[in-house]
């Protein structure tokens, strides 16, 4: 198979896996909670607290709520992209095909991330309902660019945690504990400058922080250089995660074939 037809075949798998994940998620109550109910509750509370602060605060909440949906989906649903297949006995079937496993995980994560953008749209519409006027995005072009890289960076995050959850059950135990701290350290609802200084380095190593910074900056008309810097940081993380992911997938599959853990008995 030539490189071009191989690429085409892998792209088809990405779309098939994304379609599969979307169909499957449609019947999953947890997914509905993660992308609609939870962000809406958080947004309502935040709107109520910031009701006198004007457009900037409202759009901050809209994006922050959307980010919570993205993060929850990446952490819980994408994180289980491989372990879920193992539980249902389909991992062996996937590994037995000529498609590299990470291609399937990219497809599933793409679906999860795109789906979680529903949260952002839902809170945007909610803001319109609560305040009677739709909040404005001041740099729509930069916002679109930031959103594109935010989606890619969340996919790369999903790609790195799904094999980690399989390789190391201890990491999986941290799953619940990782949800809310990243809402805070990622600056989803308020700038990290309000946090103690020692937490700043922690924020800087989190791709969600740079995604939030770029999106908040673009929506509130922040400096273009600052938005581009945040996008650059997302690209850097995407590259680093990409390199680690390739090795992780090789390792997890070899280890699973040695230890007979491709399927859960």
């Amino acid at each position: 198979m030539s490189d071009l037809s191989n690429l085409r075949a892998n792209l088809r798998v990405i779309f098939s896996a994304a379609e599969m994940a979307l169909r499957s998620n449609l019947t999953d109550g947890f997914v509905f909670f993660g992308i609609v109910i939870q962000p809406t509750i958080i947004a309502l509370l935040a709107f109520w607290m910031l009701r006198d602060q004007g457009n900037d605060a409202i759009i901050y909440v809209v994006i922050g709520s959307g980010m919570t949906g993205l993060w929850t989906m990446a952490l819980f649903i994408s994180g289980q992209a491989i372990s879920g297949e193992r539980w249902t006995g389909t991992l062996e079937m996937l590994v037995a095909t000529p498609t590299p496993l990470y291609i399937v995980v990219i497809g599933k994560t793409l679906a999860n991330v795109l789906q979680s953008l529903v949260a952002m749209v839902a809170t945007y519409a909610l803001a319109g309902l609560v305040f009677g006027v739709l909040p404005r995005i001041l740099r729509p072009g930069m916002f679109t660019l930031s959103l594109f890289f935010a989606v890619i960076s969340y996919i790369s995050f999903g790609l790195i945690i799904s094999p980690l959850f399989v390789l190391n059950p201890q990491v999986r135990r941290l799953q619940n504990g990782l949800e809310f701290p990243v809402y805070i350290l990622g600056g989803f609802f308020f700038p990290i400058a309000l946090l103690p200084g020692w937490t700043t380095p922690l924020s800087y190593i989190l791709p969600p922080y740079w995604a939030a910074r770029a999106l908040h900056g673009a929506s509130s008309g922040g400096a273009v250089s600052d938005i581009l810097f945040a996008i650059g940081m997302m690209i850097l993380f995407i590259l680093i995660y990409g390199m680690i992911t390739a090795r992780l997938f090789q390792r997890i599959l070899y280890k699973a074939r040695v230890e007979a853990t491709l399927v859960r008995q």
Binding site: M1, S16, M20, R23, S24, T88, G89, T90, T99, V104
Partner: peptide
């Protein structure tokens, strides 16, 4: 019975595996 996607139809399962086999 494992190794299939139960929430999908038989045809959808086969279509998906068709794409996985390129």
């Amino acid at each position: 019975e494992r190794g299939l996607y139960w929430r999908l139809s038989g045809i959808d399962n086969l279509r998906y595996f068709g794409s996985l086999y390129h």
